[in-house]
């Protein structure tokens, strides 16, 4: 009965072929270090879900940002849990993505035919750091305000274009309401879209080329 429905569905969607390509495939025997990639993906999904929930109550303006986060922590059912998970998963994601990069490096997995997979991975690593940097400002607390003040002024020391970068990041000469909305837009729209797109390419390449094998002594 079930197989009949599946074959009817497959006739119209090609779902069986997708399943075979993605799940029903042979790959080399790999060790536990190879779970870091899927762990990164999992943490990203956690950030998407908790981030969307936080955006229900969060208000990106200097007058209300701090209070809205305060309200999430004390007034919203399980708000403390959602924000706590978002907070910790951010740190954990940077760590796991970095370890994933090290695993790929030390196994030489960025070599033929996976060069492009590596390049997309570097984009994802940088975008993850970008998420950390922009998300840090959003609670609009002391730590956030001053870390971003210093962080953006560091960008301002780049020779030639430093002043332009500084103004582009802050939306003016000083940290202000414009900076907050800018970082908010980057944190919930621009960077997530970049990450989602590049994760798509990254996964396509991983499935197309197959996961790398653990190199042997002589390789």
């Amino acid at each position: 009965m079930a197989s009949k429905w599946i074959s009817r569905l497959d006739e119209r969607t090609g779902i069986v072929g997708v399943y075979k390509t993605v799940f029903d495939r042979k790959i080399p025997k790999v060790n536990w270090w190879f779970t870091l990639g899927s762990a990164s993906l999992f943490l990203f999904s956690v950030q998407v879900v908790t981030g969307i929930l936080l955006s229900v109550y969060y208000v990106p303006s200097p007058d209300h940002a701090y209070d809205s986060v305060q309200y999430i922590m004390t007034g919203v059912q399980f708000g403390w849990l959602i924000r706590g998970i978002h907070h910790w998963a951010a740190s954990l994601m940077v760590l796991v993505v970095f370890l994933h990069m090290l695993r790929v490096f030390f196994y030489g997995a960025y070599k033929y035919p996976r060069e492009i997979t590596w390049v997309t991975g570097v984009v994802l690593l940088l975008a993850t750091l970008g998420m950390g940097f922009t998300g840090y400002l959003l609670p609009w607390n002391q730590k956030a305000y001053w870390a971003t003040t210093v962080g953006t002024s560091i960008a301002g020391t780049v020779p030639g274009i430093g002043d332009f970068i500084l103004r582009a990041l802050r939306g003016g000469t000083d940290l202000s309401a414009v900076t907050l909305t800018r970082f908010f837009a980057a944190h919930v729209w621009m960077l997530p879209l970049v990450i989602l797109t590049v994760i798509g390419i990254h996964l396509y390449l991983v499935i197309r080329n197959g996961i790398s094998a653990v190199p042997k002594d002589h390789e």
């Binding site: 956690v46 200097p62 701090y66 922590m73 403390w80 849990l81 924000r83 706590g84 998970i85 907070h87 910790w88 998963a89 954990l92 609670p139 609009w140 607390n141 002391q142 730590k143 956030a144 305000y145």
Partner: peptide, 16 residues
């Protein structure tokens, strides 16, 4: 993550 959020949480910070 649930453990970290529950038992350590997010350190409170004064407003900017």
């Amino acid at each position: 993550l649930i453990g970290l959020a529950t038992f350590i949480g997010v350190a409170p910070e004064p407003k900017a």
